[in-house]
């Protein structure tokens, strides 16, 4: 899926509930096949998002370092 088609979740500056919780919220309402892109200013997200995605059997795509934030891409596969 091209970048432009991803569902973007802008969680920059979110300390509570935070980027992973925003992803958990959004992924449940999106159809299978959707690419979700979490923008996070919290470095820990680049670890805890892939860890959770793996645990629940969804697909982790990549983490891209941007200027002052991270772009974590995952795909809902089930």
């Amino acid at each position: 899926m091209a970048e432009g088609e991803a569902k973007v979740i802008d969680a920059r500056g979110s300390y509570c509930p935070g980027p992973l919780m925003e992803l958990i919220r959004a992924i449940q309402t999106e159809p299978v096949g959707t690419v979700l892109e979490v923008l996070s200013s919290d470095r820990a997200s680049s670890n805890d998002i892939p860890e959770w995605v793996k645990k629940v059997g969804q697909e982790y795509l990549e983490t891209v370092a941007e200027d002052g934030y991270w772009r974590v891409r995952v795909r809902r596969v089930k």
């Binding site: 300390y15 509570c16 509930p17 935070g18 992973l20 919780m21 958990i24 820990a44 860890e51 959770w52």
Partner: peptide, 10 residues
């Protein structure tokens, strides 16, 4: 708790 620690606020 939903994420990998006991609260969202680290």
């Amino acid at each position: 708790y939903p994420i990998g620690r006991l609260h969202a606020l680290e």
